[in-house]
């Protein structure tokens, strides 16, 4: 359901109020551009999506009935417009299975390799920037459907239910994609930190028969 503020803004937009148009744009341009940039992966496409989204919103505002939140509706138009662009490109690889994105396990279900804890990083501002940069690169490697879920949920901060509504997915399907995206990103960051800071690698637990991979 839409909020009272949403309802008022929509009514003013339907009445072609210029100030309402500016309110709409200034409130949503960052959200739309942020999602568009990450889903398409390049600025020229993201700029086109940004313009198309606001134009589509204005074209269809008269038929907006307020059955969902205004933000959900705008995110949905943004995700669809950005994914349309991406789907015209050659298909990307799918993600490995969740089990392959975690540590190796023994047959009886115990972790069979040392796991690095890099959460005390970054030590300084430069490392913070490098880690954020590495995260951006890893997000760009996610298949578009996973990337869209991850950006909406973990970057834009939508709830699981709102993300599922925006993408027309079941909550279970959204959670599965989100989890695999997070596992993939965690692994990419771990590999990066492990190469940069070998001293942080924990000692081998000393079970030479434990490795499965």
């Amino acid at each position: 359901m839409q909020t009272t503020d949403d309802a008022r803004l929509v009514e003013r937009l339907k009445a072609r109020d210029d100030a309402a148009l500016e309110t709409l744009i200034s409130h949503y341009e960052g959200k739309v551009f942020g999602l568009a940039l990450r889903v398409t992966g390049n600025r020229p496409d993201a700029e086109e999506v940004l313009q198309d989204v606001f134009w589509r919103v204005l074209q269809h505002i008269d038929s907006f009935r307020g059955e969902s939140k205004l933000s959900s509706w705008i995110y949905r138009i943004t995700a669809n417009t950005a994914l349309e662009k991406v789907r015209k490109r050659p298909k990307t690889r799918d993600l490995p299975l969740a089990e392959e994105l975690g540590p190796a396990m023994t047959e009886d279900g115990r972790i069979a390799e040392p796991v690095m804890d890099w959460t005390r990083l970054p030590h300084d501002e430069l490392e913070q920037k490098e880690l954020a940069q590495r995260l951006e690169e890893a997000i760009a490697q996610l298949p578009p459907d996973y990337r869209t879920v991850f950006v909406l949920r973990d970057i834009e901060g939508l709830s699981t239910e709102e993300g599922a509504e925006v993408l027309d997915l079941s909550v279970a399907a959204l959670k599965t994609r989100l989890h695999r995206a997070r596992l993939f990103l965690r692994k990419q960051l771990t590999d990066y930190v492990s190469a940069r800071h070998p001293a942080l690698n924990p000692p081998n637990p000393g079970r030479p028969d434990a490795h499965m991979s």
Binding site: K31, P103, I111, E113, V115, T119, L135, I139, P205
Partner: peptide, 27 residues
């Protein structure tokens, strides 16, 4: 009792935490 799982969960949570900082505020 399991440093491996603890490290795994901590880094999973940290990945989520630093992702929040990537939000684009202004264009």
């Amino acid at each position: 009792d399991c440093p491996g799982c603890l490290a795994f969960i901590k880094t999973y949570k940290h990945t989520i935490a630093i992702s929040k900082d990537l939000r684009c505020k202004d264009i």
